[in-house]
Design a protein around this nucleic acid. Structure first.
Lengths: 164, 164
DNA sequence: CTTGGAAAGTCAACAAGGCTGACGTAAATT
DNA sequence: AATTTACGTCAGCCTTGTTGACTTTCCAAG
């Protein structure tokens, strides 16, 4: 057994273990996105639309620039998906009252319906995985994921966790 | 506390908890790919090349069709990245001896060097996350990820885990 | 009140990396 | 001999990312 002076077993840090973790992330992420992808194909939307829908639902009234910093894409890229969803009546964009330069984004009823369909599917998979693994495992899952984020992303993540 | 007839606490299965897990996956995956992406930008390669390099390194001599089923892309898509890497002398492709229709793929020394650079960076992040979270958390992390995979992907994952 | 700069939106052009469809070739299998 | 398999390739398309340049709107500071 590989033991440190401190006495902890560090077998979980071998290159082999790390490789397995890397591959697990790769395959799991495919599963993670598979259901929404399936729902969206044929609906003219893609993963980029799903991400926007998710975070608008999550933080109704959020601004474009806030969304930009969460999604980490350029405004041109975000604007493209936002525009189609506004045209299609999934998203409502309204001028800010305190700062009229900002656009506050909301899902319309139609947008809510699609969000529901997508998140139901994604939650169902997550729920099944959580249930299969158990609460203890879920806690570890969350700890490792959070430790894996860039500090900037972790800030975003924790800001979302609490207030809207 | 939400208790089932069985007596288990199911608070970890609330929609809110599931949403946090979903967002954690999203932000963590960004971190997961950030370092290799940074290394590859400016090198004419992208994430697709990284994936191919990883699995060729992982299973030297693997065939094109095997790689196809692991990566889950079309042969045209894979062929594009494979061709450039063969031209650039990162990957060697040789006819099979037992079945000459197959092409067996290996990394050249140059390919090994790039693989090293990429996987060192990715492992460093994974190692830091594992170390911060601890062995117990790592086990849970792996359990949840594995449960999240599609059965087909889980088969691939477990086939890789053992033999090459 | 003017002006500087931030926020938002738009146009154009491009690249990576997915996809489908069609076709060709060599080798294995039936 | 005919069919199937593994691989490669051409052509064309889509999504989603990028840069760069530009305009409009509007807040805030001088």
């Amino acid at each position: 057994m590989a033991e440190t002076p401190g006495g902890e077993n560090l077998l979980f840090l071998t290159d082999e273990q790390l490789r397995k973790g890397i591959e697990a992330m790769f395959f799991a992420y495919r599963g993670f996105t598979a259901d929404p992808d399936r729902i969206l194909e044929g609906k003219d939307y893609g993963r980029a639309h799903h991400r926007a829908i998710h975070f608008i639902h999550r933080s109704p009234g959020t601004t474009v620039s806030n969304l930009l910093s969460i999604l980490g894409v350029t405004k041109q890229s975000l604007n493209r998906v936002l525009r189609t969803m506004i045209e299609d009546g999934l998203v409502r964009s309204e001028k800010g009252k305190v700062d009229a330069r900002e656009r506050h984004l909301h899902l319309t009823d139609k947008g809510q319906m699609l969000e529901r369909e997508l998140s139901d599917a994604q939650r169902a998979r997550m729920r099944a995985a959580y249930r299969a693994a158990g609460p203890q495992a879920v806690q570890g899952f969350r700890q490792v994921l959070e430790a894996m984020m860039d500090p900037e992303m972790r800030r975003q993540f924790n800001r979302l966790k609490d207030g809207g």
